[in-house]
Structure formats: C-alpha cells, structure tokens
C-alpha cells in the first residue's frame, strides 16, 4: 500500500521533529503548572508553636537553627530546628514515635509526643490542612 502521508518522509524518521518539541515543551509546562497548582496546599511554615501539657504556648522562629530542650511529663525532650524544619531529636518516651516521625516543614503540620505531653505545631501565614482535617 502506498504511504498516505508522504509529507512526513522529509522529516527525520526517528526522533522528535519541531512540532513535537514544541508540544513537549507545552505539555511539560502544563503538567508542571498543574503540580504547582494542585499540590500547592503546602504552606511555608514560619514559626513553631510548642506546648507542654497545659502550660502556655511558646513560639520559636524557624529562621534560627537551634536545639530546644524542654521538660515534659516524663523528662527532657530535645527538639531541633534546622533549615526551617523541625524534629524531635530525642525523647524520654518508650515508643519513640515522635522521634521516628522525622522532620516536618509545612504550615499546619504537627509533631506530638503524647507520653511526654509535648505538642509541636508549625504555623505559616495561613495554615494548610493537615491529615486530620483531610
């Protein structure tokens, strides 16, 4: 059978031609835009709110790297702020869930050590939903 679309034969046979490249760029941009738009529920966190048992909240700015040592119900918990992220460095609790949660960095995210009664909450300009709201 004769080939119907002889106009393609002048183009490279394997590879992307110019319209393909334009399409690819447009599609990549479109998908990138979608990622940005749909996944942008993540708010940059600005400060850490720390609450121990029923004491008043304390606030720490995430700009300053530091290790906060705080006494909870069981003993000393160490909380690290580094590169705008926060984690439990060590905890006297048995389960160590808080330490294993690792780093959090977005507004609305929470770290908690229930045995030691310490709750960390990241706050941004506006708070995103966390998994509990979701």
């Amino acid at each position: 059978m004769a080939t119907k679309h002889a106009e393609n034969s002048s183009q490279p046979r394997i590879g992307l031609n110019r319209p393909d490249q334009v399409l690819l760029v447009i599609v990549c941009m479109g998908i990138g835009f979608l990622y940005g738009n749909i996944w942008s529920g993540q708010v940059v966190a600005e400060q850490l709110s720390l609450k121990v048992a029923d004491q008043a909240e304390q606030h720490f700015h995430l700009d300053k790297d530091q290790v906060i040592e705080i006494h909870g119900e069981l003993g000393l918990s160490r909380i690290e702020i580094k590169n705008h992220r926060v984690r439990f460095l060590s905890s006297p609790c048995q389960s160590q869930f808080c330490v294993r949660q690792g780093w959090v960095q977005h507004g609305g995210e929470t770290l908690a050590c229930l045995p030691n009664k310490i709750v960390l909450h990241l706050q941004g300009k506006e708070n995103a939903f966390d998994s509990i709201n979701f």
């Binding site: 679309h5 106009e7 393609n8 183009q11 590879g15 992307l16 031609n17 110019r18 319209p19 393909d20 399409l23 690819l24 599609v27």
Partner: peptide, 16 residues
Amino acid sequence: GKLGLSPVGVAILAAL
C-alpha cells in the same frame, strides 16, 4: 492536519 506532528507527538497527545 496533524499540526505536522510525528507519531511521537501524536502518541503523546493521545496518551494525555
């Protein structure tokens, strides 16, 4: 008129 797309471009569009 296929916009001058090769099978690669057409396949990308169809897949999307």
